[in-house]
Design a protein around this nucleic acid. Sequence first.
DNA 1: TATAAATACGAACGTTCGTTCTATTTAATG
DNA 2: CATTAAATAGAACGAACGTTCGTATTTATA
Lengths: 225, 225
Amino acid sequence: MPRAQSSLRPRPVKNKKRPPQRQARGLRTREAILARAVDIASVEGLEGLTVGSLAEQLGMSKSGLFAHFGSKEDLQLATVEAARLRFIDKVTAPAICATKGMPRLWRLIDFWLSSGEKSVFKGGCFFSAASFEFDSRRGPVRDRVSAIMREWIEAIARAVKLAQEVGHLDPKLEATRLAFELHAIAMSGHWAHQLLDDTKAYARARAIALDKLRSVATAGCPQLP
Amino acid sequence: MPRAQSSLRPRPVKNKKRPPQRQARGLRTREAILARAVDIASVEGLEGLTVGSLAEQLGMSKSGLFAHFGSKEDLQLATVEAARLRFIDKVTAPAICATKGMPRLWRLIDFWLSSGEKSVFKGGCFFSAASFEFDSRRGPVRDRVSAIMREWIEAIARAVKLAQEVGHLDPKLEATRLAFELHAIAMSGHWAHQLLDDTKAYARARAIALDKLRSVATAGCPQLP
DNA sequence: TATAAATACGAACGTTCGTTCTATTTAATG
DNA sequence: CATTAAATAGAACGAACGTTCGTATTTATA
């Protein structure tokens, strides 16, 4: 017998547990929590991130911490957002400051690699790890990670197109393809550095990316490093 | 006070729990377990792989399954070995059958990409996932994954060198660098296919790898696809 | 200073984790 | 067929998991 769907209850909205409106103090705590969560997740993965160990490292109670999020999945989503902001702050935004064209394009790659050298994330590039952790799962976390990575590679592609428009790059190039190549080389730089302990990984990735860019640069392109 | 190390006990070897010498039946079960374990781990990760769900999927008891391995870490290590054998069986070995030089080199990359298309691992390339899951951890599992990935990229580099020796490739090339590039492009192919659901990911990776190879091929190189 | 809301805590929930026993079933060997 | 060892099952362990609840503490506002 089909269970009758109760229909007259006024807006039984889907939220399991809605945290209260946060004020200044609550937001500060939340930020501190997420800063830790990003670093833990970059090492242990977003699934390896646990409420207990996170609370312990911050010297607060599990329940006190948990009150900031309605569920573990919410914590994961918030952690992904915090990681995204850190990435923008340390990579994307500084690169956008560079002049349009080849300088900006190069800096996107260069600063991404630098973020690995400077340990912007404790356990290596957060999003490379999250990419492969969630690439064969389902649900909102995977969807968000996927969307952010699309956003990232499209940012590179946009920089390529701009470099074409200002005459630094061969206009006949397929922008998304060059973006793919640059992305691949940089991600593999992270991979070789982090997994293989290859001390020359970043230098090699830079050299390859620079060679690639030089090979498609026009005569009017400003000098690369 | 330093704890006296008991010294007269005959070989108190380090094993926590040594499984008995396995016979035919036991080995068959073990293989079945590991085949499942590889697929689960390729989706959920090696840490997400749990004894309980693995036993359930195989219709056997946790304890019966666990008796085949001394610990979860042993299970993870055995799973990594099983994945390595599957990778060799489906990628490396078939590629080695090709004639020395450019054909073999190309097939290493081509078959690696094919393994993604054919879902050799249920959740996308096992080792790309394991790489980023363990790249900032410590312990035997990370060491093994790292060693296998070194082995893999060195196999590509060896194919490059051989292609140089037989005159298919410019002998002035730095072999490890070209290997790094090819590896990067292919791994990113897996990434774009699996995370971004980019249906053209493998085609693009192949096109880029082929262009790269053509650009460094000699006149005497046999025709590429 | 009283009041209400936001924030944090402590204790406990049921579940699942890896792991360890002991007992039973299965297969090989004499 | 009896014996023995290998193979699996069953029950249980303490620890940690995500989560809930009632209560205390803090902070802002009246």
